[in-house]
């Protein structure tokens, strides 16, 4: 018998099994790192670890919802790049900050809506659709900038990513609020609860009267909006836009979501798990630098972690599908 997150009750609180394992891993690695290097356990270092993982976290949260729906979104990195370019170019041309952000997020939502429309209504495989969007969005970002960096952004805009409260960047608070809200919604909000049904068995969900297409489309729009939000934070923090922003981000987002308990076969996913997984990966990266590990080994280790996570997913899936 397999325990899966059900409708919550007292015995199954926010944490499911995967989250507990991840939390323990984080604890073990933290203790090891604080013994091995004095630089690790400082509020400053931890603040920057969390700051650096914000973009990955936002995208991994979006990816969690898409995976939950038995989909996949390979275009998030490119959508980040496109949103970054569009927003910063508008700012460079003197657009008001809210307008530039609004239009930037609008572009990302549009990318998500196109993905969602093809997947949910035209029933084309999400892998194919989002692979196409990955190439198209990156291509548009490239052509718009010809490979130029976009700079000269207004200070008020930079403050979004660079401003701090109690020495912690605003965007960290915003990301944490997003985590809490999404965790609550995933437990309690009807459309997201219905996403669990859709991801588990789309045909049964349709015959159960669930709005499969609409919710699926919504999932893709949400995922792209999270990538777009990451773009706003990234461009404001780094004071620039660049067409290569977000390159390869889709794989990190998928890896984190799967490590956090989402399945490539749909129907499962946890906000807390994903958040812990992103944090775990960021800690490992941080530990690597602090312990002067070689960059080559770092790539190998990160790849290895992803392979293990996917193997666990495949194993769990086999287990689940067997009966």
């Amino acid at each position: 018998m397999i325990k899966l997150p059900g409708l919550p009750d007292k015995s199954k609180a926010l944490l499911n099994d995967r989250s507990v394992i991840l939390a323990l891993l984080i604890l073990v690695i933290s203790i090891a790192l604080s013994l091995l290097t004095p630089a690790f356990l400082s509020s400053r270092n931890l603040t920057f670890v969390v700051t650096g993982m914000t973009y990955d976290l936002l995208m991994a949260l979006g990816m969690t919802v898409v995976l939950l729906l038995w989909g996949i979104d390979l275009s998030v990195g490119s959508v980040l790049g496109l949103t970054a370019v569009v927003t910063t170019m508008l700012l460079q041309d003197g657009a008001a900050i809210p307008l530039a952000i609004g239009l930037g997020l609008g572009v990302s939502a549009l990318c998500g809506a196109i993905n969602g429309f093809f997947v949910a209504y035209l029933k084309i495989a999400p892998f194919i659709v989002t692979l196409g969007m990955m190439s198209v969005a990156r291509g548009i970002a490239t052509v718009l900038t010809s490979g130029y960096f976009v700079s000269g952004l207004p200070d008020a805009y930079k403050a979004i990513g660079q401003g701090r409260l109690f020495n912690v960047p605003y965007m960290v608070y915003i990301a944490l609020v997003a985590v809490v809200i999404l965790a609550l919604l995933l437990r309690n909000w009807r459309p997201l609860r219905e996403a669990f049904y859709i991801g588990t068995n789309p045909e049964a969900a349709r015959l159960t009267g669930i709005r499969v297409a609409m919710i699926t489309m919504g999932g893709y729009v949400f995922c792209s909006l999270m990538a777009g939000s990451a773009a706003i934070f990234m461009t404001s923090r780094l004071s620039m836009g660049f067409f290569q922003f977000g390159l390869g981000a889709e794989l990190k987002a998928i890896a984190a979501a799967v490590i956090g308990g989402a399945s490539l076969r749909g129907g499962t996913g946890s906000v807390i798990g994903t958040t812990l997984a992103v944090f775990l990966l960021a800690l490992i990266n941080n530990g690597f630098v602090l312990l002067r590990g070689s960059p080559n080994a770092q790539n190998v280790i990160m790849g290895g972690i992803l392979v293990v996570a996917i193997m666990i997913d495949a194993y769990r899936r086999r287990d689940r599908d067997e009966d």
Partner: peptide, 20 residues
């Protein structure tokens, strides 16, 4: 194939058509 959500709980299955 078309009726139940096998990996989900009985509770989730029983109320699935009545969430509204």
């Amino acid at each position: 194939v078309m009726g139940l959500f096998l990996s989900m709980t009985m509770r989730e299955n029983i109320v699935s058509a009545a969430l509204g």
